[in-house]
Amino acid sequence: MNKFVIADPEKCIGCYTCEAGCVNVHQKVGLVAYPRLTITRTSEGTMPVQCRNCDDAPCEKVCPVKAITFEDNSVQLSESLCIGCKMCSLACPFGVITPCGTKPDGEGLISDGAYAMPVETMPDEASLHPLLAWTIGERTVAVKCDLCHFQPEGPECIRVCPTKAMYMVNGETMTESNAEKRARSVAEVFASDILDHYTRD
């Protein structure tokens, strides 16, 4: 099964450190500087939402140029091959594929002219493909969680989350947690039987 990152809403305090960390590492390797997970606030709670790496991924199905592929138990999107058709974004049931291009400098209504964000130009060796050496005003491509496959320490959001609310789910952890839940549910049945026995009279 595919692996994916998910957050425990009990532990998430909505501090955006995951988003900042995400932008930081992707920018460093020459990928689009946009957070691949989005802190989502509701009246019930807060947590970041990101790609579930579906095993039968609709985004992979609709991509006309095979920019989205299954690799290493995950769904990967090549920002070099993407033509920006946005079909994956429409097909995604979780809303976690974002068509993204960097806005031209100073175009935002409330942008501060004196302190517009500095243009970060990437060193050549850092970018994954020369076509992708993005600058401000670059074309739109689809952006999604890639599980930080480029760094050995794994997803940066898990590393930087100050409350350790994020964790990776894969076949192994899923098997373990399901076994634990089965054991617990059986124990609960017996515990209630025992409890009933002692409280009957």
């Binding site: 900042a20 932008v23 409330i110 500095p118 970060e120």
Partner: peptide
């Protein structure tokens, strides 16, 4: 903080 690009990107306006 408004001179930190990452922070300004997450919170660009009121």
């Amino acid at each position: 903080t408004r001179k930190a690009p990452l922070l300004e990107q997450l919170g660009p306006e009121e």
